[in-house]
Each structure stands twice: as C-alpha cells, then as structure tokens.
Design a protein around this nucleic acid. Structure first.
Lengths: 147, 147
DNA sequence: CTGCCTGCAAAGGGTTTGCACATTC
DNA sequence: GAATGTGCAAACCCTTTGCAGGCAG
C-alpha cells in the first residue's frame, strides 16, 4: 500500500494537482484489486467521501490514464475497467463473474517477449503484450489461487 | 467465405431459426475482419437489408454469443466487439485506431499452452488463452503485416 | 491571483426491453 | 398452428459536457 504523501507526490510529478477528489480516486484505484469500472470506483469512494460527484470520478479516471498513472484493461463485458498496477502482468478473467485477477509470472513474460523479438510484425510498434487467461472459477466466491 | 446454405445449417444446429435478419447478421460477422461493434454490424447490414432494426441486431448478436456461434472480444475501449472466427487466434490491437487484427501462429499457441499445462491455477478452469499484442500502427491506414 | 479542477445537472449515445405483428418450422 | 423472432419506439443505463463557483500552487 502507498502513503497519502507519496500519492500526492506522484500526482504532482505527473502534472496533476493533488486535489481531494483526485487523491481519493487514485488511492482507491491503488487499493482495489478487482479492476473496477468507473462507477464501482465512485460507489466505493462515496462512503468516505460523500461530497464527490460521479462525473468527477469519470473525468479523474480519464486524466489518470492520460497521465500514464493508470491503465484501462481490456474486458469482454463492454465497459471500461481501470488498473493502477502498471508493472507488466497478465490477467485471469472469469467469464461468469467477470472478475479480473492479476497474474504475475516472470517466466511467462519472458517467454512471450522472446517470441516477439524473433517474430517481427510490420507496420506496428509493440507497446505491451498481455496474456489473457479466460475461464471459469470453480468457486465463484473465492479468489483464484496461483500455485 | 461461407455459403448461405451452410450458414442456415449452422444456425439450425445451434437451435436458432434461420430468419432473414439472423442470417444477415451472421453472414456479416463471418465476412468482417475488424471485430465490429453491434452498431457497426447494423450499419454494414443496413445497405443490403434496409428493413432491419437496430435493436434486432443487438439481440441477434447476443443470441449468437449465447449459442456459441460468436465470441465477444476483449477491448480497452469499453464497448462490446464481436467475432465469428472461433478458431484459436490472438489479437493485434492498435491503441490509436482501436483496430483489432487477428494473429494466427501455431507456435505461439503451443508455447503458451505448454506453459499452462505445467503451471497450474487453482479454483479455475481455463477455457482459452489469448495473447493480446497492444501497440500502435505506424501507418494507421494500412493493415498490419505479419512476416 | 491564476488556472486548473469540481459539483451539478442536463445532454448524449449506445443498449435493452415490452409489445403487437410476422415468420419459421 | 405454436413457438420463436422481429420492428418499432420508449426506457434505460452509463458516460460526457457546459457552466459557475472552488481550490491548489
């Protein structure tokens, strides 16, 4: 977890004013592990920050993405989902519950990276490669366990 | 490309009546290579099938997905995009134009598959593994070329 | 103090839905 | 003929936007 002072600093470095609403959204994104939609972020924040406006949350999330402090993650569901974990990682996606869980594995990253240093693609600059593992959780209520 | 009679048969096998609108949508999905949104499918069909209703296209696409005749593809953009190409393949995604192009490579499929037969994930049944190659097209107007 | 940011509320756009009619099997 | 599917249009989100006031730097 990250301290509030640190969060302020990060925002500042990115050229964004460290306002209350922005801090709240940013911290919430960092805290959350389920890659929430804008609306979910809003609902989660609401409890501790009643004054915040839904529209502001949408705007702030867009700003964070634009500033490179957050990413939008791909989903089949057809709504935008956000992620403040910027390190290279992959996603485990439950097609029933629509949960997205991070999957870290350096060996896998390297494997795929190696493949694409050999295999070239023309008219295209690769920025990131993500492995999406789609399937179904046996027990929908529990998290997926990496062995 | 697929013949209309064959398309009818496929729909029938899936338990769907082969109606005019459904055939039109299904054929269009099969024809298209850019993983269109529901709205794009509607616009494309409109020219040859003026009578069709926008709402029907949305409904039909959902039915096709439910019946397993089409897939929804993951996108960062935040809207549903469809694909009738059911074979294992990966996606090249242009973060600027939002184009999605298919990437077929048996070696890559095998590579990733092998990895996950060794590496187990608990509380999760893997159904498909997709490698998403995100980046930017050098020339946005041209397609990406696989070498 | 200046410019950026927010709350509010209205507008926007894509998607879903209820209903009466049409169509397939 | 029965069940399923469609067109139409209204309703329903989720998201974006304009504006006047607020706040950080």
């Amino acid at each position: 977890m990250i301290a509030i002072g640190e969060a302020k600093h990060i925002l500042g470095t990115a050229g964004l004013k460290a306002t209350q609403p922005r801090l709240a959204v940013f911290m919430e994104l960092l805290r959350s592990e389920n890659h929430p939609t804008a609306d979910q972020v809003y609902e989660n924040i609401r409890q501790n920050h009643p004054g915040i406006a839904r529209g502001s949350v949408y705007r702030i999330l867009d700003h964070l993405v634009e500033a490179g402090l957050a990413h939008q993650v791909a989903s089949k569901q057809g709504n935008k989902r956000f992620d403040a974990n910027l390190g290279q990682h992959n996603h485990i996606y439950c097609q029933k519950t629509h949960d997205i869980q991070d999957y870290f594995n350096e060996e896998l990253n390297q494997l795929v990276l190696d493949f694409f240093t050999k295999k070239k693609i023309e008219n295209f600059t690769i920025q990131e490669i993500k492995v999406q593992i789609n399937g179904i959780k046996t027990n929908p209520l529990e998290k997926v366990k990496i062995v």
